[in-house]
Computed example of a mutant assay.
Amino acid sequence: MDAIELTRDLVAIPSHDSEAAVGDYIEDWLRDHTDAEVRRDDAGTDEDRGGNVFARKGSGEVTLALVGHHDVVPPDESQLTESGEYVIEERDGRIYGRGTADMKGALAAAMVAVREAEPACELVFASFVGEEVGGVGARYAIENGFAPDYAVVTEGSTGYSGPQTTDVAVAHKGRRGSTITASGEAAHASETEEGENAIYRATDAVDIVRDLEFPSTDVLGHSMCGSVAVTEIDGGSAMNVLPERCELTVDERTVPGERAPLSRVEEVTGVEWTVDQDLPPMACGDEAFADAVLDAADGAQDDTPEHVVKPHATDAGWLSEAGTDCVICGIAEPGEAHTATESASLAVIECCERVYRTLAASFAG
């Protein structure tokens, strides 16, 4: 079975409500088709996620991990049959269906690479649960001792420097989502002096957010700039009542080592700021490793790949935060993941299998 056939099998197993069944398939396939030591943990089992899947083979002074995830976001109606199965189509050199790009195509490529590789190091395959809901599996694995020296996270890196070119991302932004809550005192709108307008306090906080400088940094010669934006507002109860409460949501894209000083909004009377989600950014700190992955990518395709940066968070952020040097190299192109027309290039699936296999055979730290 090659990586394309395996992609078809993985995509055919629904994994948006529960990824346990596809996790079973991955575990069984690795046991049946590789000489790796295979195990399963208990990540997300209380939510019927079925646990992360790991495979390990080879030995050496360093550990190289090929990391993916086997959960997907809910499919569009057009991606489901009447009986609830996933629709899979192939045309014009691409495979279409929920999870093809994010990220079962790359997962299949990594599984075949584990089967075929004769690693120069200790090679680990890891497929996590719950990536789409905040890194459930990655965080569980890290908390329970998963600490490879190096990792290739197989999220999308194709199409950044050129169409169909599989690049190597050396950094990505994180995301911090937060809430600004302004409290006031309700009063009749005809007697404004009797109350405190929570919306006015909220807009004072918005002025502070608007004037914040965006954090920036450099990673291996690549500039990264974060952003901060107020994205939602909710306040007021009636046209003739001064509002006693107003809430704002803030989307912040973070860069390694930096955060915008959003706590300044609490300088406004009656305003509180709370962090709801903080997905960490990623930065590769080992240029030699980044170059080794780029060399493998260069040898696996006719185009010339480049080091690039990604705009959004992945499980690489959790691994990087825990001390693993990471890069991202995978099949998904910008704009493919989570869409009703999600697809992956068959040629790029094969390319990524070559990248992973070549890197495992050549990288010894």
Rank of each mutant, 00 (worst) to 15 (best):
G50Y: 01
V73Y: 04
D71N: 06
A65G: 02
F54D: 04
G51R: 07
G68E: 08
P74C: 10
A65C: 09
P75M: 05
G51T: 08
E61I: 00
K57P: 06
E61L: 01
R56F: 00
T63S: 15
L64E: 04
K57S: 08
D48T: 08
F54V: 06
G58C: 12
G68I: 07
H69D: 00
V53T: 02
H69E: 06
E77F: 02
R56L: 12
E47V: 09
A65I: 00
G50Q: 03
D46H: 13
Q79L: 13
V67F: 05
T63L: 02
D76K: 12
D46I: 04
E82M: 01
D48S: 14
E61Y: 00
N52A: 00
G60I: 07
L64W: 05
S78P: 05
S59K: 09
H69W: 00
G60E: 09
V67H: 03
V67I: 12
P75N: 03
T81Y: 14
K57D: 08
H70T: 08
D48Q: 14
G50H: 02
V67N: 13
E47F: 05
G51A: 11
T45G: 01
P75K: 02
G51V: 05
F54W: 05
P75A: 08
D46A: 15
S78Y: 01
G58H: 13
S59W: 00
E61N: 13
T45A: 05
L66V: 00
H69M: 01
D76T: 08
V53Q: 00
H69Q: 14
D46T: 12
R49T: 08
T63P: 08
T45I: 12
K57Y: 09
G50R: 04
T63G: 07
L66E: 01
D76W: 15
R56V: 15
D46E: 15
L80K: 15
D71C: 07
V73N: 09
R49D: 01
V67G: 10
G60S: 11
D48P: 02
R49E: 09
E77A: 15
K57N: 05
P75F: 03
D48H: 15
T63R: 10
G58A: 12
V67Y: 04
D71T: 07
V62H: 10
V53Y: 00
L80N: 05
S59T: 13
E82K: 13
D48K: 11
